[in-house]
């Protein structure tokens, strides 16, 4: 199979208006990805499936990822020559910026016909609140049907063009999307003998004093 860079260039030539970005993966797995824009995603996906050199006929895995808004510190290092003639100094310039929150869908494609893969596709929403619509790839790969329903259910990404977009794991009347990082479950606290973390905080709220201890400390 051609490299991902070549593939990106080929897609860019075929779909000049499309914005295709190569996302590198720094881990040893080196599974790099192509980020597609929502407008052309389905056309590019169809091309990937039908192109004779690629034949990515199976979309194996569909995942959602939540990236809440976070502050990033960029460190730019510049080497400044010492005017006095000494050793050059390295100057660090720190800039803070807010990385906007977004939701991401990742598709892992494999070719059964040619036996290669994975080609990883990523689609990103505009934000995490109102611009959460992405094109569904279920018309291209049936395997995305339940998995996109799952992503809709757990992350709240709306897939346009999905034939049957309903909640799948949570029940119909459920309100929130539990896989979002900022999801907090309703306070249906039940007494637990060994509380930790969030449960401990809740236990303290429900049983203000004395704090519940699992067993009376026996004398040493």
């Amino acid at each position: 199979m051609e490299t991902l860079t070549q593939l990106r260039d080929r897609i860019a030539a075929l779909f000049p208006a499309a914005n295709v970005v190569l996302v590198t993966n720094p881990s040893p797995s080196a599974q790099h990805a192509l980020r597609l824009d929502a407008t052309h995603a389905r056309a590019i996906a169809t091309f990937l499936r039908d192109d004779p050199a690629l034949q990515l006929d199976q979309c194996t895995n569909v995942t959602g990822i939540d990236w809440p808004e976070k502050e990033v510190v960029d460190v730019a290092r510049t080497t400044v020559a010492d005017p006095a003639g000494g050793a050059p100094r390295v100057v660090e310039e720190k800039t803070r910026r807010i990385e906007p929150g977004r939701l991401e869908v990742v598709y892992h494609l494999y070719s059964i016909a040619l036996g290669h893969g994975p080609v990883v596709l990523r689609l990103v929403t505009g934000n995490r609140t109102d611009a959460v619509t992405l094109p569904s790839l279920t018309p291209v790969w049936r395997s995305a049907e339940f998995q996109e329903r799952e992503v809709y259910d757990l992350f709240g990404i709306v897939f346009e063009g999905h034939p049957d977009l309903r909640r799948i794991l949570m029940w119909d009347g459920f309100k929130d999307h539990p896989m979002r990082r900022d999801y907090r479950e309703p306070d249906d606290y039940e007494w637990e003998p060994t509380p930790h973390g969030d449960v401990l905080a809740k236990a303290k709220l429900h049983y203000p004093a004395p704090a519940p201890t699992p067993a009376a400390p026996s004398a040493p």
């Binding site: 993966n25 720094p26 881990s27 599974q31 895995n61 892992h108 990883v120």
Partner: peptide, 17 residues
């Protein structure tokens, strides 16, 4: 380190990844 990976094997029921 930061990054991602998709690992899969042939499970008895199919591809488990």
């Amino acid at each position: 380190k930061a990054g991602e990976a998709y690992g899969r094997i042939e499970g008895p029921k199919g591809e488990i990844g």
